[in-house]
Structure formats: C-alpha cells, structure tokens
Design a protein around this nucleic acid. Structure first.
Lengths: 290, 290
DNA sequence: GCCCGGCTGTGAAGCCCGTCACAGGCGAAA
DNA sequence: TTTCGCCTGTGACGGGCTTCACAGCCGGGC
C-alpha cells in the first residue's frame, strides 16, 4: 500500500494519487455505488488536506464552499453560545462526511469544525459537487438519505435533552462511544479515544464538574474505570440501565404500548441502533451519536 | 371558488377536483416550479383528507407511507418520553409539508402528528411520490433544500436547549409565534391561535407551572397580555431582549468576534430570523420554529 | 531539572425549575 | 342549570446542576 502521503510537514496539500482518492471516496456510502466513470472523474478533482490536532477547519457562520470526508483522524463539530460555552454536536470518524448542509443550501455554516486529532480529509469543492449532483440522480438519492439520517439523529438528540437528566445522557453517550470507539479488553470495553471530562461535558451540554462527579461515582461502584483520560466500561448492562432512566422516573409500568421504539435494542446486546424492519441507507457503521 | 369540499361529515375522504388540488400543491415551494404536466399528473393521484381537531394522524414508530401537506388547520408534531411527557417539535400551518422523513428513508416515523385544529390535508402516497422523485431532478433538489432547512432549525433548537434558560426560550417562542400567527392590533401583536399554557410548556420541554409563572410575571410588567388563552405581545423589544439572555449571563463584553451570527436581527426590528446575506430556499414565510 | 497550562477532584452555596398539592374559573356537555 | 373536565394560578419544597474556588497532578517544553 504505497503510502505517499506521509510527509508534507506543513499540514498543507498532500499528494495521494487519483486511484487512492477514488478508493477513499468509495468508503462513504454516499459515493459507493456511483457509476465507475463518474466516481473516477470526481476522484480526479478531489483534493486531500491535512489538519493538525486542534486546528479549526471552519467556523460557524463561514461561507460553505466545500464538502469534506474524514479519511483519518477525528473531527469535532460544535456550536458556541453567546457566553462562550460550546456544545459538541458530533464527533466524526474516518468514512464520515460533513459540511454538506451549507454546501447544499448555499447558506452559512451551521456549526464549526475542528480537528480533534491529526486529520486527513478529502475535500470536494462546491461547484464540483453540485455539478455532479445534477448529473446523477442516484447521488441525490443518497444525499437525501444522508440528510434523513441526520434529521433522525437530531430528533433523538433533542428528545434526550428534553427527557433525560445528566445521568442518563452521560450513560447514553458512553454507550455510543463504546460502540463507535470501543476495543474489547479482557475486563470490559475500553473507549479508545482520549476525551477530557470537559470534552464529555460539551457533548452533553452540562458542566465539567457534574460529569466528573458522575464518573467518579460510577467508577466507585465498579461500573467503569477511568484511567488517565481513557474510560473502560466494565458493566455495560448497568450502563444501559442508567441510559434508560427518565428524569421524573416514577417507575410506573409504562402507560402505553408505544414509546418502546427507541429502547428495544440497547439491552438485548446490540451493535447499532437501527430498528428491526429497516435496512436504512446508512453507512453500515453504528453511527456514534453525531 | 367552487367549494365542493365542505360536507362529508364523517371526516373521511372529501372531494376536491384535480385543478384545485394542483393549485394547492403549487403553494408548497417544493412543488411550485415543477413542470406543468408532472404537477398535473401528481395532482390527479393526490387525495385530500380531513382530520378533526384532536385526532392523531400517525404515531411515532408507525410505518411512513405517505407525505402530507397542510391545506387548512394546524398540525402538531411531537415526540413522547417514556414518562409520558410530550415535546412538541413543530406546529405546522397551511402550506407546510410533513411526514417526509419516514417516507424518504423508509423507516418508521420519528414523531407523531396530531391535528391541533380541524384540518384539511393533501395526501401523497409513498410509491407515487418516490416515482415522481425519480423522474424529476428538480424535485430532488427541492427536497434536499427542505431537509437542509429542517436540519438548520433542529440545530438551532438544540442550541436553545443547551444554552438558554426557560425564560429566554419562552421569549423566543413567543417571538416566533407572534411572527407566524400574529395579528397587529392597536396596542400590540396578538398571537392568533389558542394555546394553553400546557401547549407552550410542551413546545419548550418545561413544566406548565413554570410557564404560567413566567407569563404572569411578564404580564405584570406590561410586556404582554394574556386574555382567555390568547397572548398579545405589547412590548416586543423587551421580549426580544429576554430572548437574547443567556443562562449564565455574565454580561462580560463578549470574548470573541464570533458568535453574533444568531443575534443580529432580533433587536434591530426584524420580521424574521434569517441572516442578512441569506435568502434561503425556504417558503418565503418566516418559518415558525417548527 | 523546573515551571506552566490544562486536566482532575471536591466542597460550598445557591438558584432554577420540577413536582406536588390545591383552589378557583370557564366552557361544554348532560 | 349543574356537573365535569380542562385550564389557570400559586405556594411549599426539594433536588439536580451550575458556579465558584481551590488543590493536586501530570506531561511537555525549555
């Protein structure tokens, strides 16, 4: 695997030949079944870009003139409130696409993107992409599916904010993270990305201190272990149970038959959060609560 | 204007001729510039449906086999938490489309839809619509714009949850409502839909009591008037100011230059919440915080 | 080595807002 | 008209989180 992209220490454009770029494109479900020739054409006009850890790629409010795909690394998507507090909307991993909204509707970026690790990205310019979009109906279908996916995630997220307390949200977040970035060790699932408690707090929209205390109390009861910034989930059933708990939990036996929709999987040993009858468009990957 | 749709007391299918349906379709920006023949074809296979106030059209988790457009009335889109609490995601008025997500991606409905007033709806069956979607690229473009719009609204909503307290959110909600449903009376803008305080609470994801108290305190200082369930905004500048306030408001002079993006308009006598440079795809209407 | 910046851990104080518990009002149905 | 259900209004109380204020730790740069 001819690694020609390793140098270029400045973090600017790097070289990667068209065939390699095409292979990378195909990893995103959006592009994966475009006709060969279109994809090859697209690969030719696509560029790659390195972003060092900590650098911001664009700010909320910027012009949206490109679409990105994560090749390696981790991208954090976030918005900031007027008091300077940040809310992390998503953590994107290799294979994920981002920046599509502003690109598609031509308005300003809804959120900022920042490298949460050294990243390599694939960049597709606006004009290029829109052109391609016009030419192939299948691409439009895929974009629509992508957007629907996002919309569903957003709705879920909103429900969590509205219905769950810090406790449950944190548990849920840890579940998602352990699915997306977990590595199975002997005694539990270790979340293999370095996340400060501040990072976690910003994902949930709560204070760092509150996260700290909850984490401590859970590691006290042996539900998880926190080791130099890395979290290992030791008892994932208990974690799942926590994630279920509603704020005003009168554990009355669930009024109606409805409402189950979202639970179901989590307990019964799941890898993703898809409904049974579905077969959606998505990646195939479990989509770590972006 | 031959009103042939007034009877059918059962609330089932009503008659409305194809030309009328076509005219209605054209009111949604999604359809408005489809080629004449396609639109006419679509109108022919479209049906209308009446829903009496209070009836639910579909539940969260149902199969999504149709797309709807509101002709008259008001539709409430909401999700429920396990404790039975509801969160209202949107209040849709004539011209608005809904039910597109489940229809497009084939998964289950993300939320429930219920008539918040007697409604007349336009119904487009799944197969019909997908067929049309395949046939006309412009439709896909419009759908994409619609979805982007929704996504932006969702992100905004999420920020509000994360950054603003009840106070500010309520103010913001009233602002939006007064834009979407306000009628200018001599002494202020009256919100012309009947909303119980419970309704308001469910839109914000807070308790009814809290809404009541806030509303009282505002009417005490003359910022608004509450009269038999109808709210009139008397001092909309003050209301806008309240909507700005951040929870942890240290009114330190805003650390960075960024972050303004969302404020800007509200103070300076605005009618909508669009950024200056924008002019998005949206309806034209100010999009009442769905 | 040593200092500095960012992370972690913790306690105190307080406030926002949810829950509970009523009381009263108004409109619609009986 | 009376009743009943739903909406409004309000106070008490408590808890969950935030903010503030430190202290200790660890790693990395000089």
């Amino acid at each position: 695997m001819t690694e020609r992209a390793k140098h270029s220490p400045t973090g600017a454009e790097t070289t990667l030949d068209a065939a390699q770029r095409e292979a990378l494109l195909r990893r995103s479900f959006i592009f994966k079944d475009l006709p060969q020739d279109l994809l090859a054409g697209l690969a030719r006009i696509t560029t790659t870009r390195r972003i060092p850890h900590g650098q911001t790629l664009f700010q909320q409010g910027d012009e949206g003139d490109a679409l990105y795909a994560v090749i390696t690394g981790l991208i954090r998507i976030s918005v900031v409130g007027r008091a300077g507090k940040a809310l992390t909307l998503a953590l994107l991993e290799p294979g994920d696409l981002f920046g599509e909204i502003a690109l598609l509707d031509g308005l300003s970026r809804t959120a900022a993107a920042e490298a949460a690790a050294d990243c390599m990205l694939l960049v597709i310019e606006r004009a290029t992409f829109l052109d391609l979009l016009q030419r192939d109906g299948r691409l439009a279908r895929h974009i629509i599916e992508l957007l629907c996916d996002r919309l569903r995630e957003n709705t879920d997220r909103l429900s969590e904010f509205a219905f769950l307390d810090l406790n449950a949200r944190l548990a849920g977040q840890l579940q998602s993270l352990s699915i997306a970035h977990g590595r199975d060790t002997g005694d539990g699932v270790r979340i293999d990305i370095k996340l400060s408690q501040t990072d976690l707090a910003e994902m949930l929209g709560v204070s760092r201190e509150a996260v700290n205390k909850q984490l401590k109390s859970w590691s006290a009861i042996g539900m998880l272990r926190v080791d130099r910034g890395f979290i290992t989930v030791l008892d994932r059933h208990r974690l799942a149970a926590m994630a279920q708990a509603e704020s005003g939990e009168t554990h009355a036996s669930m009024t109606k038959g409805a409402g189950m929709a979202k639970s179901a999987g989590a307990i019964a040993e799941k890898t993703g959060r898809k409904l049974p009858g579905s077969m959606g468009p998505s990646n195939g990957k479990p989509s770590a609560r972006r």
